[in-house]
Design a protein around this nucleic acid. Structure first.
Lengths: 187, 187
DNA sequence: ACCCTAGTAGAGCGATCACTCTAGGATGCA
DNA sequence: TGCATCCTAGAGTGATCGCTCTACTAGGGT
């Protein structure tokens, strides 16, 4: 399952064959259809959900370890950039590639990716809200942060450079600081 | 060619068969390998370059029609959101899906996507620079803007809602305004 | 009339796709 | 020991993949 997520991340949904999945998981082919009677779609759905949840927990861990929101944002973007560099630009967003592939071709998987994105946004928003931002603004800011992360992954992987992700992170930090400034000094 | 771009946008690189390409282009199969001896990779490379150039021109048109940088950003994000809504969330970034698919699997296509992203960033940065931002800052801001657009496409397509793209656009506008404010009142 | 090149046209190639089918262990309960 | 259930195991299915191959047509130069 973890191995399957790696394949999806690297080759995407259409680029990953079920044979490759069974080899990577060191499991027989027949077992796949025992555990996932729905075939490739059901397998992908499970991978999206589980890797989405894992990534949300990673963000929460980073955020909750940081002294404040702005530092958390920097830690996350710089951390993502470092991981990209260390893993030869493979270990990016676990569902980003799949999300774009299935958005207009498989509604069930599209909904699965939407639920994952929604859960990330909610996790970020609730922390921003706890730190003082009002609800709708926290959710909007969280949406932009997730979008910037995804776009950062895309540009950094294409360029094979951590720079775009780091740059996006720096700007996102300023955006977060600006939002908190306005809370403290409304106007 | 335009039809092929549409297929790539909707189904991605791996999800688009060459048979589908020939049907969409209403061209015989043999002709494909006459015009693109390199096969699918060469075809994709041509599609990436041409649709990338077309999209850059679209951005330039929008930017140059707007009274100032901040308005241009809003026009672009809101325009992209509107197009998404009108086209049932199909007509998004012409190369985003392909870029993620090939980033770790085909270095030639990866470089093609990188060139396109670079040309977009350069087009945005040169305009921000003309409007008063210094060089490196203009390029960094342009990088974040492109990342936010790509992320906005991803979230809006997954959610089947223009909202994430519009939200990202609103925040990007603020970021641009902030950058110009700091030029006018340094410190 | 002759050929040469450019481009049209699609049948057919082996490989791989997602998937189905049948058969064989392993475990728990009787 | 007998039996049902859960899971392993992989050969085999038709369909489709990217691609190659040969044959045909159109138009210009000689």
């Amino acid at each position: 399952m973890t191995a399957t997520g790696e394949l999806f991340r690297r080759h995407g949904y259409n680029g990953t064959g079920l044979k490759a999945v069974t080899i990577a998981a060191d499991a027989p082919f027949g077992s796949l259809y025992h555990h996932f009677p729905g075939g490739k779609v059901e397998l992908a759905e499970a991978v999206i959900e589980s890797s989405g949840a894992a990534y949300r927990e990673l963000f929460e861990l980073i955020y909750d370890s940081a002294p404040d929101a702005a530092t958390a944002i920097t830690d996350f973007f710089d951390g993502a950039a470092a991981v990209l560099e260390e893993t030869d630009y493979v270990d990016a967003c676990p569902i980003g590639t799949v999300a774009l592939e299935v958005a207009s071709t498989d509604d069930r998987l599209r909904q699965a990716t939407q639920l994952v994105f929604g859960s990330w946004i909610e996790a970020v928003a609730s922390r921003l809200h706890d730190d003082g931002l009002d609800g709708p603004e926290a959710e909007d800011l969280a949406t932009t942060l997730v979008a910037a992360i995804e776009g950062g992954f895309m540009l950094s992987r294409a360029a094979r450079s951590p720079a775009p992700m780091q740059t996006a992170g720096r700007h996102m930090r300023r955006l977060v600081e600006l939002a908190f400034d306005e809370v403290r000094a409304p106007g």
